[in-house]
Design a protein around this nucleic acid. Sequence first.
DNA 1: CTAATAGTGTCTATTAGACAGTATGTT
DNA 2: AACATACTGTCTAATAGACACTATTAG
Lengths: 271, 271
Amino acid sequence: MSYKNEEEFLAHYNPNEFDRPSVTTDILIVSISDEAPTNYRKSKKKSMSILLVKRDDYPFKDMWCLPGGFLRMDEELEDAPKRILATETNLRDIYLEQLYTFGGVHRDPRMRVLSASYIALVDKNKLPEKIHENAKWFDVDYVEDHDHVKVYLSSEEENFSFEIKKILHEKTTDRYRFEIVSNAALAFDHPLIIWSGIERLKNKISYTDIVFNMMPEYFTLGELQKVYEVILHKKLLDPAFRRIIADKVEKTEFMETGAGHRPSYMYRYKK
Amino acid sequence: MSYKNEEEFLAHYNPNEFDRPSVTTDILIVSISDEAPTNYRKSKKKSMSILLVKRDDYPFKDMWCLPGGFLRMDEELEDAPKRILATETNLRDIYLEQLYTFGGVHRDPRMRVLSASYIALVDKNKLPEKIHENAKWFDVDYVEDHDHVKVYLSSEEENFSFEIKKILHEKTTDRYRFEIVSNAALAFDHPLIIWSGIERLKNKISYTDIVFNMMPEYFTLGELQKVYEVILHKKLLDPAFRRIIADKVEKTEFMETGAGHRPSYMYRYKK
DNA sequence: CTAATAGTGTCTATTAGACAGTATGTT
DNA sequence: AACATACTGTCTAATAGACACTATTAG
């Protein structure tokens, strides 16, 4: 079959020639939580936390999953996570970045579904305590060795974990693909999305300014350092840290109050 | 409607509840080309080159595009680019990495099509001269300023260029989205895929070993340095370069022959 | 001999790591 | 006073940038 021009071709084109998968988007929403200090002198502990939603429908009924939904045919791909954040979790105008597209054949028991996943960073303090009936923040911690990661998720009421195996890609010495080894509570392949997001964040924190999307407008350098430490998953030395962020922040006239120790100046992100 | 269990739910599930987009994969195949030296003393110039295919069907008939094709319903997402590389360009067992998923509503005039794009790195010397009737290698060069990039593509017979505008994402000081400003010869939004790939390569070359996927087994450090320079788009100083790659390569007993200057030892990638 | 690249020594500048010290709030 | 953190000085180690020098081949 041949056509005179593109217009004629399009008029005869049958879009059903190839089967089509469903496409969803899933969003890993990451923030920083404060844990109450054990003692009046101590400052608050920080931890990384993510927002999960309890499914009240099949498939994976009653399990936890990332906020997500189907892509609409009339919206740009990046607008899908924006819409879902706005409608499902009431989050607007936040940092959003495409993470990876997951396309395992059997990742959804209903049918073939691809997930274009995104990572979103928010400052929890700007949000209402209760975001959604079914949504809950889970603190994230993990233990990692050369070929496994065990990730622990915990909220006040419940906690669970999953484990991922890291498998070196052929042709590389530094790229891994992941495989779920154990997973009790999460729907779909969401453990993979969560871990990909944690790794992305860990990598990008040192060469970008994304942290400040999770910080309040005013913060102390001690707090900021704790956030870096939680994301980089290691302790940092004070002088080194201060040198590194020196030109990303500016000192304000305000000071911390009520700390059981020497109060810090409040700082602000300097673009 | 409520179901007793997941099995029952699945038995009644209607996968046509949501419209589905078509999903393709497009592959940016990157390699290194040698240009003949202008003078017997000089060593060969290196340039980055990509493989483009001339479309002989609508849409975008007679324009150039990246090798690509539709995702099959029974194959893993990463297997689609592998299959297409094998069948369309006869490339097997090469470095492949997911780049980005493009999902503009009108990026394909036929219907809604998402493209999960991949970048592939190959050593041209391992390949036959003619890969496919419609495929051709184009050397890539570009000129970049703070908010525009002009990319020049050239083969022996023809050359063309496209221009992209870099637009800072809200909430960031370091992430851009791209918009095509001019494009004479490339189909779809492929200029965006090409530029994303170039940037990815530029970033990853310094903290991974991916270059060696584009290198022959034996090479001189001068050649390797030229490859770094072409990808990083800047000159490097010899001693600094040699320090950096010192523990990624191992010297062999072989030496370069026929160079119009002091011959170099041949090196090899050391894992 | 000359042009062109190979390969190294070394000095300097910059950045990162480590530790120790002083400062200052709350109870 | 004592604890906990804030904040800084400084020494050292490691890394990056710059330049200059010697070496070696084809023609």
